[in-house]
Amino acid sequence: MTLEQLRIFVCVAERLNMTRAAEALHITQSGVSASISALENTYGTALFDRVGRRIELSVAGQAFLVEAEKVLSQVRNAQRTLADLSNLRRGAVSISASQTIGNYWLPQIIAEFNTRFPHLGIELHMSNTAGVVRMVLEGEAELGFVEGSHADAALTGSDIDGDRLCVFVRPGHPWAEHPPGIEALARGGWVLREDGSGTRSEFVRALGSLGVDTSTLDVRLELPTNESVRSAVLAGVGPGAMSELVAREAEASGALVRVAIKLPRRAFRMLRHSERKLSRAAEMFVKSVPASRPARAPEIRLAANA
């Protein structure tokens, strides 16, 4: 049974005349008759009774007409949905983002996208970098935004505008006035995000590039969110590494002090599955994302021992 056979059957059932149905469908009368006969022969059921020179719906034909009209209505709805999706009149973008990006960087982009495409929805899920990678791999998100690196060949990525990781302490901490040396960095008593977070991995990588033996890094407290890291640093637990976006308000108010260690600017990374085609809505969202700015070389002056 094909959709074309259903359309022909419904057209004949509405007119109870093969000739008029053929004219409405712009096909030959023999084509209409052949289609009806094929349906009846395939299922061994007469859909029309031939009464003299007229045709009438049989009992089976009356029941089948109800179902055929339902199917054709669903097909029209599906066609409208595809047309709406293609023309961006409806649809949604499923996004997974690491916490720094999801809380501090994406909201403005989402707001601007919503203004341009008010009929499109945004489904935003937040996790750490490892969780974002998993969601994109498993098809739970079309797009992923992370700070950390990934090593899965099934994903393709592109660098986008990012931020800078910085070291922050509470006023009065020795590092607030005098930046630490390499050994002091290693034994700093850090407050950091958990393993698997992009902020943690990027910070450890940056310390390694400064000559710090990261295997001996003294981590006093591991926390699952940027906000909890910020709160712990504000409480004086120890120095913390966080995005300048996360600490912006606390730094502006003087509650946190940025330590004079200039770490490299980091690009964020936008991920997608290499074998899955993006929806039109997701394609438009990608075009709304700012491109990466060129990274500047870090300016770092550290004493060997401090």
Rank of each mutant, 00 (worst) to 15 (best):
Q99I: 10
S127Y: 07
A255H: 13
A21Y: 05
E40Q: 11
P180C: 13
R116D: 06
S149Q: 09
R187V: 07
E183Y: 07
S30N: 05
V286P: 02
F203A: 09
E227H: 10
I122K: 05
S209C: 01
Y104C: 07
A46E: 09
E202S: 04
R80Y: 05
G208A: 04
A255I: 05
L120V: 09
V146N: 00
R269T: 10
E194W: 09
A250W: 04
V191C: 11
E227C: 01
P180T: 07
N114I: 04
Q62G: 10
A235D: 15
V146P: 01
I160T: 06
R53H: 14
H125M: 12
R301Q: 14
S86K: 12
A291N: 06
K277W: 00
A186F: 00
G52A: 10
S149G: 01
A281M: 12
S37P: 00
C166N: 03
A21Q: 08
P171G: 08
S201H: 06
R80S: 11
E123G: 02
I300S: 11
P294Y: 10
K70P: 00
R15W: 06
H273L: 03
R90L: 07
V51W: 03
L39G: 03
E112H: 11
V132K: 01
N41T: 15
I95V: 13
P174M: 01
V233F: 09
S127L: 08
E244L: 11
R164I: 10
A304P: 02
Y104S: 12
R193D: 04
V212Q: 01
